[in-house]
Amino acid sequence: MYVVREIFYLQFGRFKEAKAMFEQANSLGLMKMPEGGRILTDFTGESYRFIFESPYKTLADFEADLNREMSAEAWKEWYEKFKPLVRHSEREILKQIS
């Protein structure tokens, strides 16, 4: 089992706007979370983050989801509007051992 975390560090003061964009993407079906996936935000630590945490049985499953999501034209249009809200991002891929 693998856990993929997509971490977006938002521009200061843009949290509400980014949250609204995530809600829009969710309502349009642009970001389909696998079962057991969740969206988190910071409570302590560096502020203004959105964290998508998704479990996958294999890395091939993750790659298939990523390719399907990123090749959709509606997702590309949405993402171009979302990028100005982000300072930077990172991806963590963790292997669950117990």
Rank of each mutant, 00 (worst) to 15 (best):
Y9Q: 02
R49F: 02
G36E: 07
M31V: 14
L30S: 10
E17G: 05
Y9C: 03
G37M: 02
T41D: 04
F8A: 04
G45Q: 12
R14T: 11
G37L: 02
L30G: 07
E17P: 02
I51S: 03
M33L: 15
K32V: 15
K16I: 09
R49G: 00
E17R: 01
M21P: 03
L40Q: 08
F8N: 00
A25Q: 06
E35C: 14
T41M: 14
R14A: 06
K19H: 08
F50T: 01
G13D: 05
R38K: 15
L10K: 00
F22T: 04
Y9I: 01
I51C: 04
G36F: 02
Q24E: 15
L28P: 02
E23A: 06
K16L: 13
A18K: 02
G29V: 13
P34M: 07
A18G: 06
R14C: 13
K32S: 10
F12Y: 14
R14M: 10
G13A: 08
F22H: 04
A20W: 03
A18L: 12
R49T: 06
N26L: 09
R38Q: 14
D42C: 06
T41P: 04
K32A: 13
Y48Q: 12
Y48M: 12
A18C: 11
P34W: 03
F15I: 01
R14K: 11
G13M: 07
M21E: 09
G37K: 00
E23K: 08
I39V: 15
R14D: 05
Y48H: 11
